[in-house]
């Protein structure tokens, strides 16, 4: 109405300008927070930008990061039995598994995970009934080629680092 709306708009942006200096954890002159950054409280004003290489969020427990293998504390090996369920479930043919042994002795010999093609959908984990794989919290795996792979050992090491004991811990699926 005769310029009032335009002035109201200016008032809103001015508020944002001021509150970007005065409110929130990153208020002036602070730019980077130290340590793992908590998720911001919902707000309408104030800085939200995550200064990525310097700051990182703590991921939610359910965050679907890179696929890891879980170690069986008794044998020290992966619980994978090379049943191929995950291979069939994967929509992109990311996984290749070869097994050795028969029956209950059957174990995975190799387990190849083509990182560059994974879409992090977690269908493989959902299909695995042997408590062998889970999606970890790590996400900084840049691959410059489509065929960058992780093998069983690497995935087990990642699983140790992630601290996950059982599949579906964070998903309310472990009794």
């Amino acid at each position: 109405m005769l310029g009032r709306g335009m002035l109201k708009g200016l008032w809103v942006t001015l508020q944002h300008t001021i509150s970007s200096f005065t409110s929130g954890p990153r208020r002036f002159p602070k730019r980077y927070l130290d340590g793992p950054v908590p998720r911001p409280e919902p707000s309408t004003q104030g800085m939200l930008t995550l200064q990525y290489p310097f700051e990182k969020y703590e991921m939610w427990p359910r965050f679907r990061g890179v696929l890891v293998h879980l170690r069986d504390p008794e044998t020290g090996q992966s619980r994978c039995t090379a049943c191929m369920a995950c291979v069939r479930a994967c929509p992109h043919g990311v996984l290749t598994v070869t097994g050795e042994g028969k029956g209950r002795e059957r174990r995975a010999k190799t387990y190849t995970y083509e990182l560059g093609r994974c879409i992090f959908c977690r269908l493989c984990v959902e299909s695995c009934r042997f408590d062998a794989i889970e999606m970890g919290q790590e996400y900084e795996f840049v691959s410059t080629t489509q065929d960058q792979t992780l093998n069983l050992e690497e995935m087990l090491a990642l699983g140790d680092r992630s601290g996950i004991k059982h599949t579906g811990e964070a998903w309310g699926q472990v009794e």
Binding site: M1, M6, P42
Partner: peptide, 25 residues
């Protein structure tokens, strides 16, 4: 609940910013 409450505030603010702007009209 926090997010939805905040959304309500956001709608109000967004309307103040945009709904009456003469150039926009």
């Amino acid at each position: 609940v926090k997010v939805t409450d905040n959304l309500e505030r956001f709608f109000d603010e967004f309307e103040t910013l945009t709904a009456e702007n003469e150039i926009f009209l």
